[in-house]
Simulated scan of single mutants.
Amino acid sequence: MTTPKFAQIKQFIVDKISSATWQENQRVPSENELSNQFSVSRMTARRALSELTEAGILTRSQGLGTFVASFKSQSSLLEIKNIADEVKERNGNYSCTVLALESLPAITSIAIALGIKVNSTVYRSVLLHNENTKPLQIEERFVNPTFATQYLQQNFTLLTPHEYLSNVAPLTQATHTVEAIMPNKQMCQWLNLSSQEPCLQLIRRTWSSNGIVSYARLVSPGSKYRLGGHLTFKNNN
């Protein structure tokens, strides 16, 4: 099967970033430049850039262009916490339901997010985190087996993926994208939502010192979950 042109452009850009040919904050070719280089329409080039921007790999600035996103940790804005610890801090009773734990070939979007080749083996887990037996958050995570060879052998009712990965591939960097979404039918069933209410979706990629470890999507009902942070500003006086 022939790889679609927009996917070829995405892989080209990711390869340039993964090989360090293009550095953080470096400007990438424009829609016009990519459309000429790959002999495609501007719409096709725009789709490639837009999807990479949505994945947090690129960032776009109106009037300036598209740039390689910074992969520095955003913990000063959004602290990465273990959800089990969050529940316990509220004196809640944490539990987890494992919905899926499997090995599968990486589709294009996942391969790009993890910086690996399309159809490479990845590990996938889908967990339902509960507080006081009530559904709190769906976690779908894709993991690069290179950094967590025993991922599929873990009992995630006893420890979270965050805990396990922090031990075998200590977190050094992370990116986050947060948005409001409407859940699909499956999400409503898992989260026990009687009707479709807005949910909070967090897309997170994490790095260890040797590369991208995981790509996760965390979805929580808007009425049950919130994100917060604390900023400290230096006094220049």
Rank of each mutant, 00 (worst) to 15 (best):
T108Y: 14
T66L: 01
I13R: 05
L158Q: 13
A148F: 04
S30D: 15
P145Y: 11
A180Q: 13
V40A: 09
A106E: 07
A55N: 04
A111P: 13
E102Q: 08
L78C: 12
A7M: 04
V168N: 07
S125C: 12
L128T: 13
N144P: 08
R124C: 08
H129N: 10
S19N: 15
E102S: 11
T175P: 05
S223W: 00
Q150M: 01
V213D: 01
R47Y: 04
P161Q: 05
I57N: 07
F147D: 10
I112N: 14
L49P: 04
K117R: 10
S75C: 04
I57E: 07
L77K: 09
A106V: 06
T172Q: 13
I9W: 11
Y151V: 00
E163P: 01
S73Y: 00
N210S: 05
K5S: 09
H162D: 13
E79Y: 12
Y151M: 03
W207G: 01
F12P: 07
L202T: 15
I181A: 08
Q26C: 12
L152Q: 10
A216H: 00
S30A: 14
E24C: 10
E131K: 15
S208M: 09
V68L: 04
L77I: 05
N236E: 03
L104R: 02
T59D: 10
I83E: 14
T172R: 10
L165W: 02
A180K: 14
K88N: 02
A113E: 07
T21D: 12
I80E: 08
T149R: 08
L78D: 12
S35G: 08
T160C: 09
L101F: 12
A106P: 06
L114C: 02
Q154R: 07
Y225W: 10
Q37W: 14
S194N: 07
P135M: 09
T232R: 03
Q154D: 04
S50C: 11
I138P: 10
H162T: 14
Y151Q: 02
L227Y: 02
L78I: 15
R226Q: 07
T44D: 05
A180Y: 13
E140H: 08
T3H: 01
A169N: 07
V213P: 01
H129K: 15
A84C: 12
Q62F: 06
N192V: 04
V122P: 01
F67E: 01
V40P: 11
M187T: 11
S95D: 10
C188I: 03
L52M: 05
V118Q: 05
A106Q: 05
N130Q: 14
Q154E: 10
S76N: 06
R226P: 00
G222S: 00
A45Y: 09
T66M: 01
R205Y: 04
N236P: 00
E54A: 12
T157N: 05
S120K: 14
R124P: 03
S50K: 11
A7E: 11
A48H: 09
G65A: 02
V178T: 08
S166V: 01
P4Q: 00
P183I: 01
K88G: 02
I212V: 05
R47T: 06
